[in-house]
């Protein structure tokens, strides 16, 4: 009995290490593949936006101990910038919209309608991203190209970055909108749940003292539900950073030129990895694949950092709650 128990304890302890082991294995694996690129590119990887796979028809040359095609250079700045811009835009749109939707759900819907609606919202999060991408190409891009972007250009040109040329309809705005559509359900569902779980006595107390619905929502979002508010936003950001298919479809897939205005095309890290993987695998020196592995590594590090930050904020909020209860 006792030994059985001990064995069980030991076994569950081992199993508890599995997630950490998996994570470390993946990191090690990606790092191993990325290593030639890290050495070969050095800091250029982050400072240059020229992604040049070199001339593979000529014999490879030896650079810093690695064989690479002549002229090859891998600068990921465009991909990094594209990812950050599109994700930032997505959060900028999705966060206030989610806040207003959750406030509306909390304030205006009867309890029995709330649950089904939240389920419906959560269902949105399960729609495959290729569907969003398709909708983006068929509906959104023409709308942006023919109507919205020309309107923005002639009416908002005084805002820096809004006066550029409208070319295709794909790019920053399309990606930001599609991403926001994809992450808003996540943020909304976190927010609705946290508004809903705030104590009724506190909500009624606030309103009884003359708080408007708006002030009530603001108070909940910044106090009671603060950790969920930020946690939800970071969850959404994590999703946006790593989202691949939809931004591959509506990003524009540009190369070797940085976006010059809000109408420019982009090429996110995740999209670039998918787009270039096929040709990289067949390439003889392996440096192409290694450069994509470095890109993956960087994307992974950013995503992990966002997630960790989210947890820390959420954790701090939770701790504060406990302290309050104890006092």
């Amino acid at each position: 009995m006792d030994t059985k128990n001990k064995f069980f304890n030991f076994f569950t302890f081992l199993m508890s290490l599995v997630p950490a082991l998996v994570l470390i294995t993946i990191l090690a694996f990606v790092l191993f593949y990325a290593w030639p690129s890290i050495v070969f590119n050095g800091t250029t990887f982050f400072t240059s936006y020229i992604w040049n796979v070199g001339i593979s028809s000529r014999p490879p040359v030896l650079v810093r101990g690695f064989l690479v095609p002549p002229n090859a250079s891998f600068g990921a700045l465009l991909f990094i910038e594209s990812t950050l811009i599109s994700s930032a835009l997505a959060i900028l749109i999705a966060f206030p919209v989610s806040f207003l939707v959750s406030l509306g759900v909390e304030m205006y819907l009867p309890a029995r309608a709330k649950r089904p609606l939240v389920s419906l919202i959560e269902l949105f999060a399960g729609i495959p991203s290729v569907v969003y991408g398709l909708w983006g190409i068929v509906v959104l891009e023409p709308l942006l190209l023919n109507t919205i972007e020309p309107w923005m250009r002639s009416n908002m040109y005084f805002i820096p970055g809004f006066s550029g040329e409208v070319l295709t309809g794909s790019g920053i705005i399309a990606s930001g909108l599609i991403l926001s559509l994809m992450i808003a359900p996540i943020i909304t569902s976190v927010m609705v749940n946290s508004f809903d779980s705030a104590p009724k006595e506190i909500k009624q107390g606030l309103v009884s003292l003359g708080a408007t619905k708006w002030e009530l929502g603001k108070y909940l979002a910044t106090n009671y539900s603060r950790s969920s508010t930020y946690g939800g936003a970071l969850l959404g950001l994590g999703r946006a950073l790593g989202e691949t298919m939809a931004v591959l479809m509506v990003g524009g897939g540009i190369v070797n030129v940085l976006p010059s205005s809000i109408y420019s095309g982009i090429n996110t890290m995740a999209a670039a990895i998918v787009a270039y993987l096929d040709s990289a695998i067949g390439q003889g020196t392996g440096i192409n694949l290694s450069a994509l592995a470095e890109l993956s590594l960087f994307l992974m590090v950013i995503s992990l950092a966002v997630n960790l930050l989210g947890r820390r904020i959420a954790g701090r909020g939770a701790l504060r709650g406990v302290e309050n209860d104890k006092l």
Partner: peptide
């Protein structure tokens, strides 16, 4: 409604101080 709630105050069954 907000004006009204300032004129008709309310105290609840369980003390509900804000945190």
């Amino acid at each position: 409604d907000v004006e009204l709630r300032r004129e008709i105050g309310m105290v609840f069954q369980r003390p509900n101080p804000f945190p």
